[in-house]
């Protein structure tokens, strides 16, 4: 079995030795348990690196990844992942730290471009068009595929300017009135308008953590993207703020396709229609959320969702 070093957050320079040890021990313990635990379902798959079990196809595919591989230098971080993301649906990517789910997410709007050593192979299409083709400008792609990050990262500007930034650089508003209405609608949809409408000129960084994250969501939807990528959007938030963001996702998925990376199984169960379980760069299992959580078909998935891995 190949041992792969993976970094959860590829922008951070990490000591390459420590993840090896971690992954290694994790893998050994997994194998150990696999040998000890008696399979309850004989049809359950147990290997890592085999075919993805479940159903990678979506009913109404909008974004399609076929055989995607990602390399950071010599590290093979994502191995042969195929996944379809349907319109108006929330797909949750789950898996232990370092399994490549964030890396995969960053392939979907080509954020890996900014890492010199990163190399992506395979085919990713958005509405039938290859997003990695030469003629595709990443700027145009990112206007269609928005992203919300793990840590709330508002610009050190006013709340208004934070939301207006995207429309401004893309020239989405012809005049101030239109820009005002975009800002108001976006804040409204992000459920933030009531709290900030009297202080739009205050710095975005003066808000609380949960408010900042909703500001970042408002900033993302102000560009009116077709897909929203969320990289552990609630990991820095308290349960109340998390609940608000989850409600928000329920509303937003009526218009957008949402891909969310999360470490919280409960969150995945609450917000997503489909779940994809990643392990060591492999996509192990994809299926409807209910099905994965009630009846996982892969041993690794079961171990993870029952708390035996990760």
């Amino acid at each position: 079995m190949n041992i792969v070093v993976m970094t959860d957050n590829p922008t951070e320079k990490q000591d390459s030795t420590s993840p090896v040890v971690e992954v290694n021990s994790l893998e050994q313990s997994t194998q150990h348990r696999l040998q000890v635990a008696l399979p309850e379902f004989t049809e359950q798959a147990t290997d890592v690196g085999g075919e993805t079990v479940g159903n990678v196809r979506a009913e109404n595919p909008f974004m399609v990844a076929e055989n995607v591989n990602v390399y950071y230098g010599d590290n093979h971080a994502i191995r042969d992942v195929s996944l379809e993301i349907g319109k108006k649906q929330v797909v949750a990517l789950i898996g232990p730290s370092g399994c490549g789910k964030s890396t995969f997410l960053r392939c979907l709007n080509r954020m890996n471009d900014s890492i010199d050593t990163a190399r992506v192979t395979g085919m990713i299409t958005l509405d039938g068009e290859d997003i990695n083709r030469k003629a595709q400008d990443p700027v145009a792609l990112r206007a269609r595929v928005g992203m919300v990050f793990q840590k709330p990262n508002p610009f050190p500007k006013s709340i208004y300017d934070n939301v207006a930034y995207g429309p401004r650089i893309h020239g989405l508003a012809v005049d101030r009135a239109e820009l005002d209405s975009i800002v108001h609608t976006s804040l409204e949809r992000a459920g933030l308008l009531k709290e900030v409408k009297d202080r739009l000129e205050d710095p975005g960084t003066s808000l609380s953590g949960g408010q900042q994250q909703r500001l970042c969501i408002a900033r993302t939807i102000a560009v009116n993207p077709e897909v929203i990528l969320m990289d552990e959007p609630c990991s820095a938030l308290d349960p109340i703020a998390t609940a608000r963001i989850e409600d928000l996702m329920d509303e937003l998925c009526e218009d957008y396709a949402i891909v969310i990376v999360t470490h919280s199984m409960q969150q995945a169960a609450r917000v997503s229609r489909r779940v994809a379980y990643f392990h060591l760069g492999h996509l192990v299992e994809v299926d409807d959320t209910d099905r994965v959580f009630t009846n996982p078909r892969h041993k690794l998935t079961e171990d993870y969702i029952t708390g035996r891995i990760g």
């Binding site: 900014s114 990112r142 990050f149 930034y165 650089i169």
Partner: peptide
């Protein structure tokens, strides 16, 4: 300048030049 600010701007579709002049330079 924290990388999160760059990523936020890149994620919104700002070009490299816009990232530099709108966000990195002022900070």
């Amino acid at each position: 300048v924290p990388p999160s600010i760059r990523e936020a701007a890149l994620g919104l579709g700002a070009s490299q030049m816009q990232v530099v002049f709108h966000h990195v330079m002022p900070l």
